Amino acid sequence: MGKVYTPATAAIGVAEVLQLLEGRWKLVILFHLFDGKVQRFSALEKLIPGISQKMLAQQLRQLEADGIVARKLYPEVPPKVEYRLTDWGQAFCPALDALLKWAEQRDTVKD
């Protein structure tokens, strides 16, 4: 059975989740890794215009440290590094889909 939330514990839980996902680029990075996609660092850099190498590396390190993204380093020259979502990271897909559907309603729902 799932955890039972009170308004206070739910607010704390939401704050913790938002902290995991905070950062301008994290959700964009996750989008490019959904559906089991494996991407190399250079491919992610090309897929995300406007992100610097430093910022991409920083955001990927944070996502890896939080258990959302897995990094695989191949011992070759030049180094080959691939990124993919962990199972827990992949489980975020339905939540992001729900956010996108919610955002679509903005123009159709008028109060």
Score class of each variant (00 low, 15 high):
Met1Val: 01
Met1Trp: 02
Val4Pro: 02
Val4Ser: 08
Thr6Arg: 01
Thr6Pro: 01
Pro7Arg: 02
Pro7Val: 00
Ala8His: 02
Ala10Leu: 10
Ala11His: 03
Gly13Asp: 10
Val14Tyr: 08
Ala15Pro: 03
Ala15Tyr: 03
Val17Ala: 15
Leu18Met: 13
Leu18Ala: 14
Leu20Gly: 11
Lys26Val: 11
Val28Lys: 13
Phe31Val: 12
His32Gly: 03
Leu33Tyr: 04
Leu33Gln: 04
Phe34Trp: 14
Phe34Pro: 07
Asp35Ala: 11
Gly36His: 06
Lys37Asn: 11
Val38Trp: 08
Gln39Leu: 03
Phe41Lys: 02
Ser42Ala: 09
Ser42Lys: 03
Ala43Phe: 03
Glu45Ile: 02
Lys46Met: 07
Lys46Ile: 04
Leu47Val: 06
Pro49Thr: 10
Ser52Trp: 05
Ser52Met: 03
Met55Asp: 10
Leu56Ala: 03
Ala57Trp: 05
Gln58Glu: 11
Gln58Arg: 12
Leu60Glu: 01
Leu60Val: 01
Gln62Met: 12
Gln62Asn: 12
Leu63Phe: 07
Glu64Asn: 05
Ala65Trp: 05
Asp66Phe: 15
Gly67His: 07
Arg71Pro: 00
Pro75Ala: 09
Pro79Ile: 02
Val81Asn: 00
Glu82Ser: 06
Glu82Phe: 05
Glu82Thr: 08
Tyr83His: 04
Arg84Leu: 09
Arg84Val: 09
Leu85Ser: 02
Leu85Ala: 02
Thr86Gln: 06
Asp87Glu: 14
Asp87Ala: 13
Gly89His: 06
Ala91Cys: 04
Phe92Ala: 11
Cys93Ser: 15
Ala95Phe: 15
Leu96Gln: 10
Asp97Leu: 15
Asp97Cys: 13
Ala98Asn: 10
Leu99Arg: 07
Leu100His: 13
Trp102Ser: 12
Ala103Leu: 13
Ala103Ile: 11
Ala103His: 11
Glu104Gly: 12
Thr108Ala: 14
Val109Trp: 12
